[in-house]
Protein backbone atom coordinates (compact mmCIF):
# COMPACT_ATOMS: atom_id res chain seq x y z
CA UNK A 1 0.00 0.00 0.00
CA UNK A 2 1.92 3.01 -1.26
CA UNK A 3 -0.98 5.43 -1.15
CA UNK A 4 -3.47 6.05 1.65
CA UNK A 5 -6.82 7.80 1.71
CA UNK A 6 -6.82 9.45 -1.69
CA UNK A 7 -4.53 10.09 -4.66
CA UNK A 8 -4.74 10.61 -8.41
CA UNK A 9 -4.63 7.23 -10.16
CA UNK A 10 -1.92 8.57 -12.47
CA UNK A 11 0.38 9.00 -9.45
CA UNK A 12 0.35 5.26 -8.96
CA UNK A 13 1.56 4.81 -12.51
CA UNK A 14 4.27 7.47 -12.24
CA UNK A 15 5.72 6.07 -9.01
CA UNK A 16 5.63 2.47 -10.19
CA UNK A 17 7.32 3.31 -13.47
CA UNK A 18 10.36 4.58 -11.57
CA UNK A 19 10.38 1.43 -9.47
CA UNK A 20 10.10 -0.91 -12.43
CA UNK A 21 12.71 1.02 -14.41
CA UNK A 22 15.16 0.65 -11.54
CA UNK A 23 14.78 -3.08 -11.83
CA UNK A 24 14.62 -3.39 -15.63
CA UNK A 25 17.03 -1.34 -17.69
CA UNK A 26 15.15 -2.01 -20.94
CA UNK A 27 12.25 0.13 -19.71
CA UNK A 28 12.15 3.49 -21.50
CA UNK A 29 9.46 6.17 -21.51
CA UNK A 30 8.11 8.54 -24.12
CA UNK A 31 5.71 11.41 -23.91
CA UNK A 32 4.05 13.80 -26.32
CA UNK A 33 4.58 17.03 -24.39
CA UNK A 34 2.58 15.93 -21.35
CA UNK A 35 5.23 14.59 -18.99
CA UNK A 36 3.87 16.18 -15.83
CA UNK A 37 0.15 15.52 -16.49
CA UNK A 38 0.86 11.83 -17.16
CA UNK A 39 3.31 11.65 -14.22
CA UNK A 40 6.08 10.33 -16.43
CA UNK A 41 8.19 13.31 -15.32
CA UNK A 42 9.29 11.37 -12.24
CA UNK A 43 10.81 8.80 -14.57
CA UNK A 44 12.38 11.56 -16.67
CA UNK A 45 14.07 13.01 -13.59
CA UNK A 46 15.47 9.64 -12.54
CA UNK A 47 16.38 8.29 -15.98
CA UNK A 48 17.00 11.21 -18.34
CA UNK A 49 18.89 9.00 -20.80
CA UNK A 50 15.95 6.65 -21.13
CA UNK A 51 13.33 9.35 -21.53
CA UNK A 52 12.19 10.50 -24.97
CA UNK A 53 10.36 13.77 -25.37
CA UNK A 54 8.51 13.46 -28.68
CA UNK A 55 6.81 16.83 -28.80
CA UNK A 56 3.19 17.14 -29.83
CA UNK A 57 3.36 14.16 -32.17
CA UNK A 58 1.36 11.24 -30.88
CA UNK A 59 1.55 9.21 -34.08
CA UNK A 60 5.30 9.62 -34.17
CA UNK A 61 5.50 8.67 -30.50
CA UNK A 62 3.52 5.46 -30.93
CA UNK A 63 5.41 4.42 -34.07
CA UNK A 64 8.74 5.16 -32.42
CA UNK A 65 7.74 3.18 -29.35
CA UNK A 66 6.83 0.27 -31.62
CA UNK A 67 10.25 0.35 -33.27
CA UNK A 68 11.95 0.46 -29.88
CA UNK A 69 9.93 -2.52 -28.70
CA UNK A 70 10.75 -4.50 -31.84
CA UNK A 71 14.39 -3.98 -30.91
CA UNK A 72 14.13 -5.20 -27.32
CA UNK A 73 13.18 -2.18 -25.25
CA UNK A 74 10.02 -1.93 -23.12
CA UNK A 75 8.62 1.49 -24.02
CA UNK A 76 5.93 3.22 -21.99
CA UNK A 77 4.29 5.79 -24.26
CA UNK A 78 2.26 8.40 -22.43
CA UNK A 79 -0.29 10.97 -23.48
CA UNK A 80 -3.97 11.78 -22.94
CA UNK A 81 -6.55 9.13 -23.80
CA UNK A 82 -8.06 11.00 -26.75
CA UNK A 83 -4.67 11.59 -28.33
CA UNK A 84 -3.64 7.95 -28.21
CA UNK A 85 -6.81 5.93 -28.67
CA UNK A 86 -8.38 8.22 -31.27
CA UNK A 87 -5.63 10.28 -32.85
CA UNK A 88 -2.98 7.57 -33.05
CA UNK A 89 -5.30 4.63 -33.58
CA UNK A 90 -3.71 3.63 -36.89
CA UNK A 91 -0.21 3.59 -35.41
CA UNK A 92 -1.45 1.54 -32.46
CA UNK A 93 -3.31 -0.88 -34.70
CA UNK A 94 -0.55 -1.41 -37.25
CA UNK A 95 2.81 -0.66 -35.69
CA UNK A 96 2.07 -1.80 -32.14
CA UNK A 97 -0.61 -4.48 -32.27
CA UNK A 98 -0.19 -6.06 -35.71
CA UNK A 99 3.57 -6.07 -35.18
CA UNK A 100 3.01 -7.62 -31.73
CA UNK A 101 5.29 -4.93 -30.33
CA UNK A 102 5.74 -4.89 -26.57
CA UNK A 103 4.53 -1.31 -26.10
CA UNK A 104 2.72 -0.03 -23.02
CA UNK A 105 0.42 2.89 -23.81
CA UNK A 106 -0.55 4.69 -20.63
CA UNK A 107 -3.05 7.51 -20.86
CA UNK A 108 -4.30 9.97 -18.35
CA UNK A 109 -7.36 12.14 -18.91
CA UNK A 110 -9.69 9.32 -19.81
CA UNK A 111 -13.40 9.67 -19.20
CA UNK A 112 -15.62 12.45 -18.01
CA UNK A 113 -13.68 13.68 -14.97
CA UNK A 114 -11.22 15.59 -17.15
CA UNK A 115 -13.42 18.53 -16.23
CA UNK A 116 -13.28 22.02 -17.66
CA UNK A 117 -11.29 21.13 -20.76
CA UNK A 118 -14.59 20.01 -22.23
CA UNK A 119 -15.71 17.47 -24.79
CA UNK A 120 -12.63 17.64 -27.00
CA UNK A 121 -10.49 16.23 -24.22
CA UNK A 122 -12.95 13.73 -22.72
CA UNK A 123 -12.41 10.23 -24.07
CA UNK A 124 -15.56 8.17 -23.60
CA UNK A 125 -14.58 5.67 -26.26
CA UNK A 126 -10.90 4.97 -25.66
CA UNK A 127 -11.40 1.62 -23.96
CA UNK A 128 -13.78 0.47 -26.69
CA UNK A 129 -11.36 1.52 -29.43
CA UNK A 130 -8.53 -0.34 -27.76
CA UNK A 131 -10.63 -3.43 -26.99
CA UNK A 132 -11.34 -3.87 -30.69
CA UNK A 133 -7.69 -4.31 -31.58
CA UNK A 134 -6.61 -7.96 -31.62
CA UNK A 135 -3.99 -8.85 -29.05
CA UNK A 136 -4.38 -5.65 -27.05
CA UNK A 137 -4.63 -5.91 -23.27
CA UNK A 138 -6.80 -3.13 -21.82
CA UNK A 139 -6.54 -2.09 -18.18
CA UNK A 140 -8.44 0.51 -16.17
CA UNK A 141 -7.30 0.53 -12.53
CA UNK A 142 -9.57 1.82 -9.78
CA UNK A 143 -7.11 3.74 -7.61
CA UNK A 144 -3.50 4.77 -7.31
CA UNK A 145 -2.45 1.58 -5.56
CA UNK A 146 -4.00 -0.57 -8.22
CA UNK A 147 -2.37 1.59 -10.91
CA UNK A 148 0.94 1.01 -9.14
CA UNK A 149 0.48 -2.76 -9.15
CA UNK A 150 -0.87 -2.74 -12.70
CA UNK A 151 2.14 -0.80 -13.97
CA UNK A 152 4.49 -3.42 -12.59
CA UNK A 153 2.30 -6.20 -13.96
CA UNK A 154 2.15 -4.78 -17.49
CA UNK A 155 5.89 -4.17 -17.55
CA UNK A 156 6.43 -7.83 -16.76
CA UNK A 157 3.80 -8.95 -19.29
CA UNK A 158 5.06 -9.43 -22.86
CA UNK A 159 2.68 -7.78 -25.33
CA UNK A 160 0.87 -4.56 -26.17
CA UNK A 161 -1.14 -2.92 -23.39
CA UNK A 162 -3.37 0.13 -23.11
CA UNK A 163 -3.89 1.45 -19.60
CA UNK A 164 -6.09 4.38 -18.61
CA UNK A 165 -5.22 6.30 -15.46
CA UNK A 166 -7.45 9.05 -14.12
CA UNK A 167 -6.53 12.65 -13.53
CA UNK A 168 -8.44 13.55 -10.39
CA UNK A 169 -7.68 12.46 -6.87
CA UNK A 170 -9.77 9.42 -6.06
CA UNK A 171 -10.23 7.42 -2.87
CA UNK A 172 -8.00 4.48 -2.11
CA UNK A 173 -10.12 1.34 -1.96
CA UNK A 174 -9.60 -1.48 0.50
CA UNK A 175 -9.61 -4.59 -1.66
CA UNK A 176 -8.90 -6.91 1.22
CA UNK A 177 -6.30 -9.54 0.63
CA UNK A 178 -6.89 -9.89 -3.10
CA UNK A 179 -3.82 -9.02 -5.12
CA UNK A 180 -3.67 -7.54 -8.57
CA UNK A 181 -3.36 -10.00 -11.40
CA UNK A 182 -3.79 -9.03 -15.06
CA UNK A 183 -6.98 -10.52 -16.45
CA UNK A 184 -8.26 -11.60 -13.05
CA UNK A 185 -11.24 -9.80 -11.55
CA UNK A 186 -11.15 -8.82 -7.89
CA UNK A 187 -14.24 -9.57 -5.84
CA UNK A 188 -14.36 -6.55 -3.59
CA UNK A 189 -17.63 -7.41 -1.88
CA UNK A 190 -19.63 -10.61 -1.73
CA UNK A 191 -23.35 -10.96 -2.28
CA UNK A 192 -25.80 -12.93 -4.39
CA UNK A 193 -28.76 -10.65 -5.09
CA UNK A 194 -27.17 -8.38 -7.64
CA UNK A 195 -23.70 -8.01 -9.08
CA UNK A 196 -22.18 -4.61 -9.69
CA UNK A 197 -19.40 -4.91 -12.27
CA UNK A 198 -17.21 -1.83 -12.25
CA UNK A 199 -13.75 -0.51 -12.99
CA UNK A 200 -11.78 2.71 -12.79
CA UNK A 201 -13.03 5.52 -10.60
CA UNK A 202 -16.56 4.08 -10.62
CA UNK A 203 -15.62 1.17 -8.39
CA UNK A 204 -15.84 3.32 -5.29
CA UNK A 205 -19.32 4.51 -6.28
CA UNK A 206 -20.39 0.90 -6.81
CA UNK A 207 -19.18 0.02 -3.32
CA UNK A 208 -21.09 2.93 -1.86
CA UNK A 209 -24.22 1.82 -3.68
CA UNK A 210 -23.72 -1.71 -2.33
CA UNK A 211 -23.70 -0.40 1.24
CA UNK A 212 -27.00 1.39 0.63
CA UNK A 213 -28.51 -1.66 -1.04
CA UNK A 214 -27.68 -3.70 2.04
CA UNK A 215 -29.93 -1.39 4.06
CA UNK A 216 -32.70 -2.43 1.66
CA UNK A 217 -31.92 -6.08 2.29
CA UNK A 218 -30.20 -6.51 -1.07
CA UNK A 219 -26.79 -8.17 -0.99
CA UNK A 220 -24.67 -6.83 -3.82
CA UNK A 221 -21.54 -8.47 -5.11
CA UNK A 222 -19.03 -5.88 -6.30
CA UNK A 223 -16.55 -7.04 -8.90
CA UNK A 224 -13.56 -4.99 -9.98
CA UNK A 225 -13.03 -5.72 -13.67
CA UNK A 226 -9.80 -3.71 -13.88
CA UNK A 227 -8.75 -5.72 -16.92
CA UNK A 228 -11.31 -5.11 -19.62
CA UNK A 229 -9.45 -7.34 -22.03
CA UNK A 230 -8.87 -10.17 -21.62
CA UNK A 231 -12.08 -10.23 -19.62
CA UNK A 232 -12.26 -12.54 -16.61
CA UNK A 233 -15.05 -14.62 -18.11
CA UNK A 234 -15.34 -16.93 -15.15
CA UNK A 235 -15.98 -14.05 -12.77
CA UNK A 236 -18.65 -12.59 -15.04
CA UNK A 237 -20.33 -15.93 -15.73
CA UNK A 238 -20.35 -16.80 -12.05
CA UNK A 239 -21.95 -13.47 -11.27
CA UNK A 240 -24.59 -14.04 -13.94
CA UNK A 241 -25.36 -17.53 -12.69
CA UNK A 242 -25.33 -16.75 -8.99
CA UNK A 243 -26.78 -13.25 -8.94
CA UNK A 244 -29.05 -13.21 -11.98
CA UNK A 245 -29.17 -9.43 -11.89
CA UNK A 246 -26.25 -7.46 -13.28
CA UNK A 247 -25.25 -3.82 -13.43
CA UNK A 248 -22.17 -2.55 -15.24
CA UNK A 249 -20.67 0.71 -14.01
CA UNK A 250 -18.06 2.59 -16.02
CA UNK A 251 -16.69 6.04 -16.70
CA UNK A 252 -16.99 5.40 -20.40
CA UNK A 253 -19.60 5.17 -23.10
CA UNK A 254 -22.10 2.40 -22.43
CA UNK A 255 -21.21 1.27 -25.96
CA UNK A 256 -18.26 -1.00 -26.48
CA UNK A 257 -16.62 -0.76 -23.07
CA UNK A 258 -17.42 -2.71 -19.93
CA UNK A 259 -21.12 -3.13 -20.69
CA UNK A 260 -20.20 -4.10 -24.23
CA UNK A 261 -17.68 -6.69 -23.12
CA UNK A 262 -20.02 -8.20 -20.54
CA UNK A 263 -22.96 -8.22 -22.96
CA UNK A 264 -20.93 -9.87 -25.70
CA UNK A 265 -19.93 -12.65 -23.34
CA UNK A 266 -23.30 -13.23 -21.69
CA UNK A 267 -25.37 -13.04 -24.87
CA UNK A 268 -23.48 -16.08 -26.09
CA UNK A 269 -22.97 -18.02 -22.89
CA UNK A 270 -25.62 -17.05 -20.36
CA UNK A 271 -28.19 -14.51 -21.57
CA UNK A 272 -28.86 -12.15 -18.68
CA UNK A 273 -30.40 -8.67 -18.51
CA UNK A 274 -27.74 -6.05 -17.91
CA UNK A 275 -28.34 -2.56 -16.62
CA UNK A 276 -25.62 -0.22 -17.79
CA UNK A 277 -24.46 2.84 -15.87
CA UNK A 278 -22.13 4.91 -18.00
CA UNK A 279 -22.11 7.79 -20.43
CA UNK A 280 -24.81 7.51 -23.04
CA UNK A 281 -23.93 7.84 -26.71
CA UNK A 282 -22.99 11.50 -26.53
CA UNK A 283 -20.11 13.95 -26.29
CA UNK A 284 -19.31 15.64 -23.00
CA UNK A 285 -18.89 19.30 -22.15
CA UNK A 286 -16.96 21.54 -19.78
CA UNK A 287 -17.71 21.25 -16.08
CA UNK A 288 -16.21 20.31 -12.77
CA UNK A 289 -15.69 16.55 -12.42
CA UNK A 290 -18.40 16.14 -9.76
CA UNK A 291 -20.83 18.22 -11.80
CA UNK A 292 -20.09 16.16 -14.86
CA UNK A 293 -20.59 12.86 -13.05
CA UNK A 294 -23.95 14.10 -11.79
CA UNK A 295 -25.13 15.47 -15.10
CA UNK A 296 -24.14 12.41 -17.10
CA UNK A 297 -25.62 9.93 -14.67
CA UNK A 298 -22.48 8.47 -13.12
CA UNK A 299 -23.69 8.60 -9.53
CA UNK A 300 -24.45 6.36 -6.58
CA UNK A 301 -28.14 7.11 -7.07
CA UNK A 302 -28.02 5.98 -10.69
CA UNK A 303 -26.28 2.78 -9.66
CA UNK A 304 -28.91 2.23 -6.98
CA UNK A 305 -31.73 2.77 -9.45
CA UNK A 306 -30.12 0.47 -11.97
CA UNK A 307 -29.59 -2.21 -9.31
CA UNK A 308 -33.23 -1.99 -8.22
CA UNK A 309 -34.38 -2.34 -11.83
CA UNK A 310 -32.10 -5.30 -12.32
CA UNK A 311 -33.33 -6.99 -9.14
CA UNK A 312 -36.98 -6.39 -9.99
CA UNK A 313 -36.49 -8.07 -13.35
CA UNK A 314 -34.98 -10.99 -11.48
CA UNK A 315 -32.87 -12.13 -14.35
CA UNK A 316 -35.90 -12.60 -16.57
CA UNK A 317 -35.19 -11.61 -20.14
CA UNK A 318 -37.94 -9.16 -21.02
CA UNK A 319 -38.18 -6.36 -23.50
CA UNK A 320 -37.51 -2.98 -21.96
Amino acid sequence: MIFRDSAPIRDGFGRALVEVATRRREVVALTADVSEPTRVHWFAEEFPNRFYQMGISENDMIGTAAGMALNGLIPFATTFAVFAASLAHQAIRLSVAYNEANVKIVCSHGGITVGGDGATHQAFEDLALMRLIPGMTVVCPCDANEAYDATIAIADYEGPVYMRVGRIASPIIDQGRSSFELGKARIVRTGDDVALLANGIMLVYALEAAELLEQEGVQARVINLHTLKPLDEDAVLSAARECAALVTVEEHSVLGGLRGAVAELLSARHPTPIEGVGVNDTFGEAGEPEEMLAKYGLTVNQILAAARRAVSRGGVVTEV
Partner: peptide, 14 residues
Protein backbone atom coordinates in the same frame (compact mmCIF):
# COMPACT_ATOMS: atom_id res chain seq x y z
CA UNK B 1 9.17 6.05 -40.65
CA UNK B 2 8.78 6.35 -36.87
CA UNK B 3 9.15 2.59 -36.50
CA UNK B 4 12.49 2.74 -38.31
CA UNK B 5 13.50 5.64 -36.12
CA UNK B 6 12.47 3.74 -32.98
CA UNK B 7 14.55 0.74 -34.04
CA UNK B 8 17.49 3.07 -34.69
CA UNK B 9 17.08 4.81 -31.32
CA UNK B 10 16.92 1.45 -29.55
CA UNK B 11 20.19 0.56 -31.30
CA UNK B 12 21.76 3.67 -29.82
CA UNK B 13 20.26 2.94 -26.40
CA UNK B 14 21.39 -0.69 -26.39
Amino acid sequence: VPVAKGIAQANLQL
